[in-house]
């Protein structure tokens, strides 16, 4: 019984939220890894692209709420998501046309592309703050919980319940659907195979008549769509904070490198490893241990490895460990 309570507690505060967070990170990391694989640079503007897509979704959500459109009990944001995706795709193609294409044609050093992407990141950050402002925005409506803590306590007959938020389930379902679609696209379609071929060897792809501009455009479209979905889901699950998207870059990059850059499967693996580590390391295990230990005993401290203030230190430690032990990542990615 006590063990079950400990498990329920763990599931409620670690497993469920970390899974949702992992799915959000995975969608972001997939975009970064695709851009790594196709355009061959670290795209620092990806976090702001997530923010931009989320912002467009929020604006559309507000518009729909105003107009009385609703798909209750589901959040209206789900209906607005395609608009956010479209806006992010438009923005990504525009930045590629105005900024990145020039450097690609010049075959610039990837580090130059990375610097330019930092420039894009700040321009995007400025645009976002001008449009929606720097403050937090909450836009979730619809049912809040699928299973709330009280019901689950009763159902399981335990002291601890497992609450599952609707946004968490939506995150997982959408992420699963999007990832399946992406892998189907990459493995089965002509354009998807062309993308993999291009990522493998640019020159040989050219010899085979694969158009680089087309591959690059598809890459931006996919990455931006993933970013918008990731950003919207993240904002829906927590709240939308414009400044958070600069900080989320670190876990995303850590996940990408951990998985092996240019490797979609690796990105997903990496994202979940980062998410679970982050939540576990910053969770206070005191109560869990109290259930597991002898009756009436509880550990003295919080039994928390790191305070939540340092949660991104977890990503950093993972990053450092990967660079030291296996810089190619779990699935051998492109190193130099």
């Amino acid at each position: 019984m006590e063990i079950l309570n400990a498990l329920a507690l763990f599931a409620n505060f670690v497993f469920v939220p970390a899974t949702a967070y992992g799915a959000q990170l995975a969608l972001g990391a997939l975009g970064v890894t695709l851009i790594f694989g196709i355009l061959r640079f670290a795209n620092f503007s990806h976090g702001e692209m997530m923010s931009f897509g989320a912002m467009a979704s929020i604006l559309a959500t507000w518009g729909m709420q105003e107009a009385g459109v609703s798909i209750a009990p589901f959040p209206t944001a789900l209906l607005a998501l395609p608009i956010g995706v479209a806006a992010a795709i438009g923005m990504a193609l525009a930045t590629d046309r105005m900024v990145f294409r020039f450097y690609r044609k010049q075959r610039s050093n990837p580090i130059v592309m990375a610097i330019v992407s930092v420039g894009v990141m700040f321009v995007l950050a400025g645009i976002i703050r001008l449009i929606i402002g720097p403050d937090d925005q909450s836009f979730a409506d619809g049912e809040r919980f699928i299973i709330n803590a009280r019901d689950s306590r009763a159902a399981l007959g335990l002291d601890e319940g497992i609450a599952i938020k609707q946004t968490q389930v939506i995150t997982l379902v959408v992420a699963l659907a999007v990832m399946s679609a992406l892998f189907w696209f990459l493995q089965k379609t002509r354009s998807g195979k062309a993308m993999r071929a291009y990522s493998d060897d640019e020159d040989l792809a050219l010899l085979s008549g694969i158009s680089p501009e087309r591959v690059v455009a598809i890459c931006w479209i996919i990455a931006a769509a993933l970013a918008a979905i990731a950003g919207t889901l993240y904002g829906l699950d927590k709240t939308y904070k414009p400044f958070i998207f600069m900080q989320i870059l670190l876990p995303i990059f850590a996940a990408t490198i951990l998985g092996g850059i240019g490797q979609p499967v690796g990105a997903i693996l990496g994202a979940f490893i980062v998410a679970y580590s982050e939540v576990m390391v910053t969770y206070a295990f005191r109560k869990v241990l109290a259930y597991l230990g002898p009756e009436g005993w509880a550990p003295e401290g919080l039994v928390q490895l790191l305070s939540t203030d340092y949660k991104f230190a977890v990503s950093f430690i993972i990053l450092v460990a990967v660079l030291l032990i296996r810089p190619t990542g779990i699935i051998r990615g492109k190193v130099i």
Partner: peptide, 24 residues
């Protein structure tokens, strides 16, 4: 020591990380 000698962008990402930790 950690990030040099690998891909050039690894240094960029690693420095991004350490600066956030120092500030924290």
């Amino acid at each position: 020591r950690i990030a040099l000698g690998l891909r050039a962008d690894y240094l960029a990402i690693a420095t991004l990380g350490i600066s956030e930790i120092i500030i924290a």
